[in-house]
Computed example of a mutant assay.
Amino acid sequence: MPNTPTAPESLAIASGTPQQHREPFARLLHAHPETAFDYLEFRRLLAGQITAFAAERGSEEDMVRLQQRMQELEDAHSLDDPAQEAAADAAFHQAVYQMAGNAIMTHVMGTLFHMLKDGVFYDRSDLYLRRGVRDGFMRQHRAIYAAIVARNPEAARAAADAHIASTAEALREAQRADQRREVSVRRMEGLALTQKPRGEE
């Protein structure tokens, strides 16, 4: 087993990236919305393995902490508050990554999650407003949690992969819906311009 940092040390590694170092990169990514899928593709490469490591390596203290994050996620879900649920979602995943016992992975994923929470890649709260997305994400988080506490690395990896794939599909559908809305608005604006006001006929 690698020389595993304790959870507080892992948290310090994940949250200690100076903001001034992240900002130029974050601005670059924010200027190119298509990088949201690059982010999800990269996250999918790591998330499955990290979640498997969490199932293998998590200490009993880690399991207690993950249970707390899961309860917070359940509570936020029951309140029907997209912003609070999105925040609890991020806290849950960060707890999983801190359990992996790999300081580099924790640092990289922590940096990405800082940018994700800042809305660099996409609006997470907006996804939670989409029909069926919240319940689907909740089922996936429960599957990840169950696999980790059962110390089943393969099930944990599969659950993490399924969650990332579902997130990507939800984002694609959100973008398609936004595009349809924009087309509809432009069409209505075009009709308004061609119609004469009453009294001028």
Score class of each variant (00 low, 15 high):
A91L: 06
T111L: 10
T17N: 08
D89E: 08
Y128V: 03
E85T: 14
N102R: 04
L28N: 12
Q20R: 15
D123I: 01
M99F: 04
F113Q: 10
D81G: 04
D126Y: 06
F53P: 00
Y128R: 07
A36V: 03
L45G: 08
P82C: 07
R130P: 01
G101P: 05
A52T: 01
V64K: 12
M105Y: 11
Q84G: 11
E74C: 13
S78K: 15
I144H: 00
E60L: 09
G132E: 08
R57D: 02
A47C: 07
G132H: 08
L45Y: 12
D38S: 13
T51E: 00
D135E: 13
T35H: 06
I50Y: 02
H77G: 11
Q84P: 01
Y39C: 04
Q20L: 15
Q84V: 09
A26T: 09
Y122I: 00
R134Y: 08
A26G: 10
D126M: 12
A91E: 08
H21M: 15
V64R: 13
Q19W: 14
D80Q: 15
R134C: 06
E34R: 11
A90P: 05
N102W: 02
R139G: 03
L45I: 09
Y145C: 03
A86K: 01
D62S: 09
G119N: 03
L73G: 01
N102K: 03
K117S: 09
A52C: 04
L66F: 03
A88D: 02
D80Y: 14
R22T: 06
A31T: 10
D135V: 08
D89P: 04
G48L: 00
